[in-house]
Design a protein around this nucleic acid. Structure first.
Lengths: 239, 239
DNA sequence: TAGTGGTCTAGACCACTAT
DNA sequence: TAGTGGTCTAGACCACTAG
């Protein structure tokens, strides 16, 4: 996805200008002025169309905002649809200490449900990772993750990280979109024991299919203690 | 949002080209070729930069896709983040018959919780609309909606529609983004009676703050029968 | 080799904003 | 009036794809 955008060693001019402006205004407050187009023309000795191409990209990106007759300014950050977060990030965002205990991490043959969800054939190799997750010490959730082994060769060997999503990101496989389903249910015996609640207590079930492009990266099935967890989601976006 | 974009009666050239191309390829299958840039230059007698400006817009919009050395083509439709839907749309999407029975529709003074959620002061006027919602005949959900009366003058008088979101859309107030929270719980006595379940049965609770721009339009609190409803959400988008 | 999109130049006139 | 962004021209060379 990232523009490398060097051509025969020479940097593309519009990229140079774009990144210069990005670095210049990067953390400035919304409403701060960016350099004018003609100022950038003089600074870089390029045509105005080249400068406009650079600024167009930053405007499309939502970093800058043009106001005719006034200038170009840092835009108010656009609200974005919820980032696809995993447990660790969710908990950290809430200011809780996220801990994780691996109950199971092994190669398995996909059962019918997992195979369908991952768009594999029954019996194909999947990585099954089951964790008990705690927040500030007490059990909050049991999470079963199933990963397509083809996409993640050697995943089990290269050490299991705390955050699955971090690990996926390092391989360029962090889901950019996901299909989630959420339901209310009661805890089974095994779940109840792990979550340290009575069997039959109310729980929140959450399934997710994480995808990047057309690739289905992971399928997770989580069960949360209802008394310790409320799901929070932001939908849609500005603009 | 729509570009009117006529200037002193003369149509902007890049808009003319853009709309010509949009109409031309409008419903074509993904992968169909669009006219080449030079072809459009000759057809409209404009500079190539003008054509590129027109096509850039359609590419950003997701309608077209450029492939260097090959041409410009109709792009595969991009996946978008979940549209903010109400109960009626959700049920219809699932192929169920959505029915609705108004239990309450009146002007009230906002209590502390509602006032905070709507960013009002306690005691401000709000519209409270409580409905029992059925799917294919059986009770599925009780939904309490609280609306900022200032934004919706005469709402109670102009007839209560089936779909709140349709009614909001007609006033330009359909939420474009929302903050949702979802939790699992058990039904209270009154809820259980309405939902035709036993008190203490598992339910799914869903709260939403619906917003358009900076305006908070509505706050809803719903309780779903867990045996009749699973929430389904799509997060994120392609790009 | 012919055609495509990608980049870039060096100008121009316009409407608008601020002073 | 000076400066800004918006539009537009008429070229140019490049890398890449396809026949």
């Amino acid at each position: 996805m990232e523009d490398v955008l060097l051509r025969d060693g020479r940097a593309l001019k519009h990229v140079v200008v774009r990144e210069y402006v990005r670095a210049l205004v990067g953390d400035n407050a919304p409403g701060s002025p960016a350099p004018s187009e003609r100022e950038l023309v003089h600074r870089f000795g390029v045509a105005r169309m080249t400068v406009r191409q650079a600024l167009d990209a930053l405007v499309t990106e939502g970093l800058l905002e043009r106001i005719p007759g006034r200038g170009t300014f840092v835009a108010r950050p656009r609200r974005e649809a919820t980032r696809i977060n995993g447990y660790t990030e969710e908990m950290t965002r809430r200011g809780l200490l996220a801990e994780s205990q691996t109950l199971l991490a092994r190669r398995e043959q996909a059962g019918p449900g997992v195979a369908r969800a991952l768009s594999l054939t029954e019996g194909d190799a999947v990585i099954h990772w089951r964790r008990l997750r705690r927040g500030d010490g007490t059990p909050v959730c049991i999470e079963d993750n199933y990963l397509n082994e083809i996409l993640l060769p050697g995943f089990l060997q290269t050490g299991m990280p705390t955050s699955l999503y971090d690990a996926l990101a390092r391989r360029g496989l962090r889901p950019t979109w996901a299909e989630d389903s959420i339901s209310a249910d009661t805890a089974g015996d095994e779940e109840a024991a792990l979550l340290e609640i009575e069997p039959g207590t109310v729980v929140l079930r959450h399934s997710r299919r994480g995808m990047v492009g057309e690739k289905i990266v992971n399928v997770s099935r989580s069960v949360y203690r209802a008394d310790r967890f409320t799901m929070w989601i932001q939908l849609g976006s500005d603009s």
